[in-house]
Amino acid sequence: MRSGEVHAVMGPNGSGKSTLAHVVMGRPGYHVVAGAITLDGADLLAMAPWQRAAAGLFSAMQYPTEVPGVALADMLEEALVAVGRGGGDVAARMRTEAERIGFDERFLARPLNVDLSGGEKKRNETLQLGVLQPSIAILDEVDSGLDIDALRLVARRVEAETEERGLGVLAITHYRRLLTELRPDQVHVLSKGRIVASGGSELADQLETTGYAGYAETDGAEPEGEGPGVATAP
């Protein structure tokens, strides 16, 4: 993936889309058996998750974790301090970002993801992306739980990041709707842990009518020996 590019990853349930997101971010419990993941030449697999984030990676989670008692502002401040960008007015930046995506300001004071609806959690993830300003973002079904208006605002916010700052995006989604706002440069179809097709946005259009049936056939037998390695092309 290059800066400024949007890559969409689509695929049936259980095809490994979220696993891909987890592995790239470094979630505990996954063991990478083959392949490499680098960011601007740096070996992400050798880094702890927080170091990957510090290197410029961001992963908006499909199911953001509730963290009772911890304020969003405190977490963001710690994250910015770790990369030498602390001391700014985090609260003001949070408010600006909240306004851009229609996230109610009163939610900013709540403990992380506690008592937020599914859609509010997704807006909260997007808000964090805006404050942290990563260079590569993985969005794992950021559209699920969002109503049509919210989806448009979130997609436009991310699209603006790609245009203004050259943010590279890997967007995991089931729906073409996200991709009408967040225009993908490439669409990839994932099946059983492997990319089985790549193409332009027309691929997403085609999937909308044909579904994944055709791709399941091309999937063939389980890979032998080495498991589904995770890698990004240089």
Binding site: M25, G26, R27, P28, A48, P49, W50, A53, A54, F58, S59, M61, P64, T65, E66, V67, P68, G69, V70, D74, M75, L76, E78, A79, L80, V81, A82, V83, P111, L112, Q128, L132
Partner: peptide
Amino acid sequence: DEDQRYYLESRGVPPAAAERLIVLGFFEE
């Protein structure tokens, strides 16, 4: 809690700071 710590770490919070925030949050209740 491992999931809570991972969430904070995935945003770039170093482990010790993440644990500090989580423990303070734990007592906040």
